[in-house]
Amino acid sequence: MSTTIPRRDRPKQAAKAVKAVKPGTPATSQTASGRHSQRWLAWIFLAPTILGMGLFTLVPIAASVVLAFFRWDIISAPTFVGFDNFAEVVQDPTVRVSFLNTIAFVIVAVALQLGLALALAVMVQEKMPAWLRTFFRSAFFFPLILSAASVSIFMRYLFNEQFGVVNWFLSLAGIPAVPWLTTPGGSAAVVILVYVWQNFGFSFLLFIGGLASIPMETYEAASLDGATGWRKHVYVTLPLLSPTTLLASVMAIISALQVFDQPYVLTRGGPGDSTRTAVMVIFESAFQRLEFGEASAIGVILTLIIMAITAAQFRLSKRFVFYQ
């Protein structure tokens, strides 16, 4: 039990596939006609994906950017309005609050999600019976397979003020009923908790993978130098894990910026605008108020934010991430 199990004992093909790095090009046939027929086959094979992506992703991206400069309610003809949509969006208090909500949500939810996932991953990866490790990994992974809508449905009952299970447990500890879903602070807390509950397992899996790739010898060397317990994690685990941490935070931030299902089902953005998010505003201005140009402008702004954060994180990584 105490030696490292050879990696090959998990014979999953996917794992093998992911390992391959160099773009291999098997010599199918090196003759001119062989290369010619390869090219033909390649384009036939690519056609569905390329055409589909062009139609349903690339053209819509371009259309979204163009539409952001028009006023259009689908019924009458679109009129060019220049930067009016952007100006309106920036001044609109609801949109502003929603973006601020989204940013606050991302900061709190991602910090909780990564902190929890990292702590649990470190605890799971240290020595313990194999069956227990399997149990914990499955348990933390489980919420990922559920639908955010279903989760939000049952969480809404659990956080009910009068007969919710959460308040019942709190009352056992002598804490008076918390108005979870009827106050701005309470609903923001519920949206964050429900989101983190469902998504920490993804970061957890990433951290488990990162931890497993830290070579044992590093820990042995550290303990020879007298590092124990916490110090070992602070001086060995954290620096060596930084590439995984970067990746996990980029992915967590990008997905948190797009949060919709949980606040929509739990609170519909309320009370007031307290849990309204950027994507909810896109949804409402397009499909409830039929202001498609304005919705596109908000979408363009959100995409720019996502791209800027991604770029910033990779730039930062050059300075702070320690690659072996």
């Binding site: 039990m1 105490s2 030696t3 490292t4 199990i5 990696r7 998990r10 996917a14 794992a15 093998k16 992911v18 390992k19 391959a20 790095v21 990866q125 240290e126 020595k127 194999a130 490790r133 899996l205 990433l206 488990i208 993978g209 990162g210 931890l211 497993a212 790739s213 044992m216 820990y219 042995e220 303990s223 020879l224 070992k232 995984t244």
Partner: peptide, 16 residues
């Protein structure tokens, strides 16, 4: 590239 493959290796820290 290798993260997923090695997820599960059992680790025993060098505990005396």
């Amino acid at each position: 590239m290798t993260t997923t493959t090695e997820r599960v290796s059992t680790r025993t820290p060098a505990v005396p």
